[in-house]
């Protein structure tokens, strides 16, 4: 493949999904960085492994597979949210435990189905369906060829929805991130926002999975916001810059993966690498600049 192959419809459609999802991720990343939700995001992405394993165990495919993973991620997000509101367990401890538990369950379920294939109750559960072995490297790093056209439209639709919700609630969300307790006194419905943010993060993670892979989604959920916040302290500039940084990473990574080594390199790692370089550049610029504005 060459870089020009990108302009074929079957490769342009995933790029369109990528651009839409990146915009949503980039805007969310500002909130994630300011509200220090990065580790919660990690917890939810790792829950994705559990979801993939569970879907394989249930022999779910197509939409059912996506739905299973989504529900597993949402479930984990809700448990994290509940735990983070209790006083008994520290939030990072809770996430640390859930993260490994979800991965463990995922890999175990994926293996178990191979051994249970002959059992009658398992055949009744799955209806005798057999799904191909889970390709963990595709789960880890993504594979755009897995994207069906309906995935693209779902991604674009959900990304738009996230952007609209963020735009409508932006004054509440920024106050919530600035000082949660005080915002509650001033009438912000903090509980609602907390769960809404976690659900949006979980949904975006599932949608990004095929494009970038589970682990690399985290890059889009952290780096654009972190970079934009190094560039400016004006909220409007930060919101524009975070989308610019995210899209440069996504579009740049997409083209680079087609252009280098005959298009045999995956998109996800390329996107992450470009984002990391942009962040490093912003760090350097932030240091060298005489005064902050």
């Amino acid at each position: 493949m060459t870089i020009w192959d990108v302009f074929e419809p079957r490769f342009l459609a995933p790029l369109l999904a990528g651009i839409a999802l990146t915009a949503a991720c980039a805007l969310l990343s500002v909130v994630i960085v300011l509200k220090r939700l990065a580790f919660i995001g990690q917890g939810i992405t790792h829950a994705g492994f559990g979801g993939v394993g569970l879907a394989a165990f249930l022999a779910a495919s197509g939409w059912w597979r996506d739905l299973t993973i989504f529900i597993f991620c949402i479930g984990t997000a809700v448990v994290i949210a509940l735990l983070s509101r209790s006083r008994k367990v520290m939030i990072d401890t809770a996430i640390g435990i859930l993260l490994v538990a979800a991965m463990g369950i995922g890999f175990l379920l994926d293996q178990m189905r191979l051994h249970l294939r002959g059992d009658a109750w398992y055949q009744a559960l799955t209806g005798g369906r057999i799904t191909p072995p889970t390709q963990w490297d595709a789960v880890l790093f993504g594979n755009i060829l897995y994207l069906r056209s309906q995935d693209v439209w779902l991604a674009v639709g959900c990304a738009l929805l996230v952007v609209v919700v963020l735009a409508l609630l932006y004054k509440e969300i920024v106050f919530f991130a600035f000082d949660e307790t005080v915002s509650r006194v001033f009438g912000v419905r903090t509980g609602l926002l907390h769960y809404l943010l976690l659900i949006m993060i979980a949904a975006i993670i599932v949608l990004c999975m095929k494009l970038l892979g589970l682990i690399l989604v985290n890059a889009l959920l952290i780096v654009p916001g972190a970079t934009a916040l190094l560039i400016s302290r004006r909220l409007s500039t930060v919101l524009i810059m975070t989308v610019v940084v995210g899209e440069v990473g996504m579009i740049g990574g997409y083209f680079a993966s087609f252009g280098i080594m005959g298009g045999r390199l995956p998109v996800g790692p390329m996107v992450v690498l470009i984002l990391a370089l942009l962040f490093a550049a912003a760090m350097v610029w932030n240091r060298l600049r005489p005064s902050r504005g």
Binding site: L34, F186, R233
Partner: peptide, 24 residues
Amino acid sequence: VGINFPLSVAQVVRQGIVGRTGMF
């Protein structure tokens, strides 16, 4: 206050009216 929090003084003061304004 987070030294890098991207809000101006006027924006912080306007947080005080979110309760009056309501969501959306």
